[in-house]
């Protein structure tokens, strides 16, 4: 589904190389985890894949279902089925959660040539999904992420993911700032979305999220590259030994 090959990325504004030949492939239906120390370029990878300004791809490619991602506008990537759950979800005062999400859902449907959802259909769908994620209906009426706790913001990201039904979900440190209960809710939400034609790239600094979302493959990232890939046991090794030995071993 997602194929990244030899990706080199530098900052647009300064001469700083952040991704230095990163390759990765996530087949349909699989969950891959990306772990790595702070500053290794995990968030940059997620931004470059979803089309944020400020980065320049100097080499390599990234495709989703064979389509060149790097050529598309962010909204086109979303319509193509890519979703990024932000490490720091953005607060947008004055814009209702519901209005925003309905606009997003219908914009994607329109782009895909699917009939738009009526208010009633949308309301029904969002109520059902919100209750699964234990998101209060009142929260849906509030402005996007304004006054939400850290946990609520992350659950709101998962709610958006559930409503948008992407094929490829990238989650950037969705576990950061969550207590155990909140993390379980988020993990349950993600697990409920797992399906043979949906894939996940779960970026995390810690192993604990992976106790709840079982990955098929774990990649260790350091200094802009994947330095080691393996099964779930790799995450446990990081948990026990830290990154030091792993990175030394990878050279």
């Amino acid at each position: 589904m997602l194929k990244i090959n030899n990706l080199h990325v530098k900052l647009e504004e300064e001469d700083k190389q952040i991704l230095k030949g990163l390759s990765l492939e996530v087949p349909a239906g699989q969950v891959h985890a990306v772990m790595g120390p702070n500053g290794s370029g995990k968030s940059t990878l997620s931004y470059v894949l979803s089309g944020r300004d400020g980065y320049e791809v100097t080499e390599g490619e990234a495709t989703l279902d064979g389509n060149d991602l790097l050529d598309m506008e962010p909204e086109e990537r979303a319509a193509a089925g890519l979703f990024l759950a932000f490490q720091y979800p953005v607060e947008i005062p004055g814009v209702g959660n519901m209005t925003f999400l309905r606009t997003a859902v219908n914009a994607q449907r329109k782009a895909r040539g699917v009939a738009e959802m009526s208010s009633a259909e949308f309301l029904k769908a969002i109520r059902a999904k919100a209750s699964e994620l234990q998101i209060d209906a009142e929260m849906l009426k509030r402005p996007v992420n304004v006054g939400f706790s850290g946990g609520e913001k992350k659950r709101n990201e998962i709610l958006q993911m559930a409503m948008l039904e992407p094929r490829m979900c990238i989650m950037d440190e969705t576990d950061s700032g969550l207590d155990v209960d909140a993390m379980r809710l988020v993990a349950d939400g993600v697990n409920a979305l797992r399906s043979p034609d949906r894939s996940f790239l779960v970026i995390t600094h810690y192993q604990r999220l992976l106790n709840h979302i079982q990955p098929d493959v774990v990649h260790i990232m350091s200094n802009g590259r994947i330095v080691k890939s393996g099964g779930p046991e790799l995450a446990l090794q990081v948990e026990e030994e830290g990154y030091g030995d792993l990175l030394a071993e990878a050279g």
Partner: peptide
Amino acid sequence: ALFYLRSRGVPKERAIVFLVLSFLA
């Protein structure tokens, strides 16, 4: 904020309308 909205599939021009309304709120 603009990137956040667009990453959800909201077209750029529409996202700007949202952010202007947010500014005026």
